[in-house]
Amino acid sequence: MNADRSTRCHARRRRAVAVVGLGIALTGCAASPTQDSSTSQDSVAPAGVAERVLQLTSVHEETGMTLLEGPTFDHDGTLYVVDVAAPAGEPKLIAVDLDSHDATPIFTDNTGAYTSAQFSPYDGRLYLTDYSGGRIISLTADGDDPRTFAEGPINGRPMQPDDIAFDTDGNLFVTDSAPASYPTGEASGRVLRFDRETAEPTVLATSLPNPNGISFTLGYDALWVSQLDANRIDHLKLNDDRTAVVSGHTAVHVDGGTTQTDSNAVDASGNIYQGVHGKPTIMVYSPEGMHLTTVTVPSKDADLESATNIAIRPGTTDAYMTVSGPAGGFIYQFEALDIGVRQSNGG
């Protein structure tokens, strides 16, 4: 990876948060029977072009940027997104009606820099990761009753929670980001598990090169974890009660060049939709690591620098990605290869 580019990418995210305040080996996950056999060929499908739905934000004068993240659907089909770079007083969580294109500010505060959002299957509340504040909060879908769920050092080190995924019981699995200084910096990122009731943390994996995206496999028996500083996706096999990683390996090497692997999601066939920081692109891979297709934005849509994350509306193939850059923050839509499931719903 180009060291200068890596430094700039980290600087952009650190700037966004500052101004507002396993080496392990394993077996692969088999594809679902619902997977279209046409996606199993050696050739890569033609790249898809996403359609712009609406613009949600402009570059904030206070922070010099906008960065949309964490798309997630509620039961009524409303899409929620966070703006990592929103300053105090401006919307940090926004609800979008995709039929009317109405956008409603839901939540803001003075210090948080929120990088992901997910609804809990246990209590129905919306959970946000505060990258700068080293905490996880929850609130209602209306933005009321904010509570701190977890914060503070874990095993003696402050956390930088980035993305979040829930298991079927409502326990939280979170990437704990930690950029390393190249070429001699030691990788120190982690994957954390939080008990749904006590918020008791467990460190599932350590010494990771800046983990970012996190999604469960279809069987909830393993995690797909993307590594921002390594342009790869790891497959971490969990034990039966999902309290420990029993084995793992690097499953997908992403040819990112000057770009980096950001957040990810999984469809009903187990395909992995990998967001990209540095270019408005989504890379799609089969569970066996085959590159299936690439989703881009129209070439005329200039000044866009990332497609950080996606959500596929459950029960449909309507996929929505958060795209940001000097032109502003946007929602784009494309057709996914299979329908959305819970693992497709942002994070």
Score class of each variant (00 low, 15 high):
H249C: 08
D123M: 10
D301T: 06
R15G: 15
M159E: 00
G256V: 11
S207D: 15
A117R: 00
H10M: 10
F173Y: 15
Y320H: 12
V49P: 10
E197K: 13
A103V: 12
F216M: 08
E151L: 06
P280H: 01
V19S: 15
S37H: 07
D162Q: 13
A11I: 07
D240T: 13
L223H: 08
L228G: 01
G89T: 09
G256Q: 03
M1L: 14
P146G: 07
T259K: 06
L68T: 05
H235D: 04
D267E: 10
T66H: 06
A205G: 06
G112P: 02
A199K: 09
A16Y: 01
E335I: 08
L304N: 03
I106Q: 04
A85W: 02
Q35E: 15
G346K: 05
D176A: 03
V295F: 12
K279N: 13
S324A: 04
L192R: 01
S306D: 12
D4N: 09
V254I: 14
V19M: 14
G347Q: 07
T206E: 14
A222V: 10
D109G: 08
R12H: 10
Q55K: 15
M65R: 10
M283G: 07
A302V: 14
H277T: 09
F166A: 03
R147S: 13
A230Q: 12
G89D: 07
G77V: 10
F119T: 08
L98S: 06
H291R: 14
S299D: 14
N212S: 13
S269H: 07
A222G: 13
S269G: 15
V323N: 02
S100D: 09
T34C: 09
Y220D: 10
T202F: 02
V96P: 03
A85C: 11
T296V: 13
G257N: 11
D142R: 12
S40E: 11
A205W: 01
D144I: 00
L98P: 08
T7A: 14
D338M: 05
A336E: 04
A311Q: 03
S299I: 12
G152E: 07
A165Y: 01
I154K: 05
Q35I: 10
L218K: 04
A95H: 03
A11R: 12
G347E: 02
Q227M: 15
E200G: 13
D195W: 04
T7V: 11
R313A: 05
V252S: 02
